[in-house]
Nucleic acid binder design. Structure first.
Length: 229
DNA sequence: CCTCGGATCAGCT
DNA sequence: GCTGATCCGAGGA
């Protein structure tokens, strides 16, 4: 049933891969311009493509960033050239970033994968897995590498919601999460755009208190206060 | 060496 | 909405 139209030369609006300049920009700009763009991963069984709908920025002055304390073996990809993939594993789950400037990157949080139901790739772990990305892709380039490309968003920048990032404790209040507005495949529609909410979260620290108890020695981190709440 | 805690997710109350 | 799974990197002693 597939009319094998190898006439790809006539494709008028075929998106083209972005170059390194795309990534060598302020990380927040890249995070926003990745919305609506597509990530293509070539594998043995063909290629998988996802339209990105949700991203997060991680910066150098950002205690939530894996690169905050400088290069280590694990995060060294974050100091690679713009467009480098930083793939890490947490709780046996793989997540993928694209490096912008040294020590900064954009976490790919959700997308709509071609041929899969919407919402299948909701969350960074699910997205990376749906794309077939593994820890072996860490350090590879999305510009010059063999496997991954970013295809520029064809149209104008979509309406974007901004809000706090998900799943972090430090710098949890910074509005560095971006998502396409009214996009059902976003992991959590609600907290976005509510950055101006006046609601205080006096009692919503259950997550924090749930984690392993800190020893009562001395009072914990110095200088790294999490906002003033 | 040991300890801590996590850029998550699935599953249960 | 909250908890456990599960393992490894990072950091301190």
């Amino acid at each position: 049933m597939g009319p094998r139209s190898s006439t790809r030369g006539s494709s008028s609006s075929r998106p083209r891969p972005v170059g390194r300049r795309f990534f060598r920009r302020p990380t927040v700009e890249v995070a926003r311009d990745l919305l609506g763009a597509r990530l293509r991963v070539d594998g043995p069984a063909g290629h998988v493509e996802a339209r990105l709908v949700e991203t997060e920025a991680y910066l150098t002055d950002d205690p939530a960033s894996h690169a905050f304390r400088g290069p280590t073996r694990r995060n060294r990809s974050m100091f690679g050239p713009p467009g480098t993939l930083y793939v890490f594993r947490i709780h046996q789950v793989v997540c993928a970033n694209l490096v912008t400037r040294p020590g900064e990157a954009v976490l790919l949080r959700a997308g709509v994968v071609e041929g899969m139901p919407p919402g299948h790739a909701r969350g960074p772990g699910r997205l990376a897995r749906a794309l077939g990305l593994t820890i072996a892709d860490d350090g590879q380039g999305a510009v010059t590498g063999p496997r991954v490309r970013v295809l520029a968003r064809p149209g104008p920048r979509p309406l974007t919601d901004v809000g706090p990032r998900v799943g972090i404790r430090r710098a949890a209040e910074r509005p560095l999460r971006f998502a396409i507005r009214d996009e059902p495949a976003v992991s959590r529609p609600r907290p976005l755009t509510s950055a101006f909410s006046t609601r205080t979260r006096a009692g919503s620290r259950s997550r924090q208190s749930r984690t392993r108890r800190r020893p009562a020695s001395g009072g914990g981190r110095s200088g790294g206060r999490i906002a003033g709440r």
